[in-house]
């Protein structure tokens, strides 16, 4: 089984995010790591490899610091890592990003492409299925269980769906996006961390992806970012004091008259 995993460097959920006063961007506190859902994808790829053999390659598109999440993937047990960090590739929307990632996947043999259900920063969940379309392979999102049948060239998956779950069979190659519950990602072993520090991270530029600068990054994007905005602030909390019976009465009164929520 040849497996490609797409991973993204994203801010920690606790990181401070500030919208710049002129709305031109955001300032994010330096607390980054591998996107949680992507770590589930890496873990699943490793488990499949441990069962059936093969190679796992992680690919990341992002600024040069994204090398950190590729090293994390290697420390977990991934065999190879590819970084797409060229300036022209950055700043695009999900569509442009997917186009570049798909081109990188195409440089490799693959039976399965895995990624997280969505990235923490934009929470779109778009890149995976769009990569699948560029590759001409089926995609299944929100996967919580994966059973590969390499002999039959197929994979059976469970996905979370409205009001329950769906059991789906896909031919290989296919793209799957990982949802919570798929597995518990491993903590990289010390030996892995040592190996990751020394590992060579391959870099692919536009030329080797076979793409032009107008097809990727901001130029290749289908969306134009106009401005960043502070989220609306909830008014300050009103504490309701007293003994429980009075509290409850006052709360009901406020919900009725002030909040008009009853």
């Amino acid at each position: 089984m040849e497996i490609v995993v797409l991973v993204k460097r994203v801010p920690d959920s606790e990181a401070q995010v500030q919208v710049k006063p002129d709305g031109s961007g955001v300032t994010v506190e330096e607390r980054y790591g591998m996107n949680f859902f992507d770590s589930l994808a890496v873990e699943e790829a490793l488990r499949i490899k441990e069962k059936f053999g093969g190679r796992v390659t992680a690919i990341s598109l992002g600024p040069s610091q994204s090398v950190e999440v590729l090293r994390t993937a290697i420390a977990m047990g991934v065999d190879d890592a590819i970084l797409l960090e060229e300036e022209a590739l950055l700043g695009g929307d999900e569509y442009a990003t997917a186009r570049a990632l798909a081109a990188a996947v195409k440089t490799l043999p693959y039976d399965l492409v895995l990624c997280g259900r969505e990235a923490f920063d934009d929470s779109s969940g778009v890149v995976g299925p769009v990569v699948a379309q560029f590759l001409g392979i089926p995609s299944v999102t929100m996967v919580t269980k994966v059973e590969v049948e390499p002999e039959q060239r197929k994979v059976k998956v469970e996905r979370e769906a409205e009001g329950g779950r769906e059991l789906i069979e896909a031919p290989l190659p296919a793209l799957l996006t990982a949802q919570k519950g798929l597995n518990e990602p491993r903590v990289p072993p010390v030996m892995g961390v040592v190996k990751a520090m020394k590992a060579q991270i391959k870099k692919l530029d536009l030329g080797s992806l076979g793409l032009g600068p107008e097809e990727v990054g901001q130029k290749g994007a289908k969306l134009e970012v106009l401005r960043y905005i502070e989220p609306p602030k909830r008014r300050a909390v009103k504490y309701i004091k007293g003994e429980p019976p009075e509290m409850v009465k006052e709360l009901i009164e406020l919900l009725k008259t002030e909040a008009k929520a009853l």
């Binding site: 801010p11 959920s13 990181a15 401070q16 995010v17 919208v19 955001v26 994010v28 929307d93 923490f120 920063d121 934009d122 929470s123 994007a221 289908k222 969306l223 134009e224 970012v225 106009l226 401005r227 960043y228 905005i229 502070e230 989220p231």
Partner: peptide, 14 residues
């Protein structure tokens, strides 16, 4: 929303 709602972004389609 982006960053889990810590900021919003306004976009338009091309």
């Amino acid at each position: 929303p982006i960053y889990g709602g810590k900021a919003l972004v306004e976009v338009a389609f091309k």
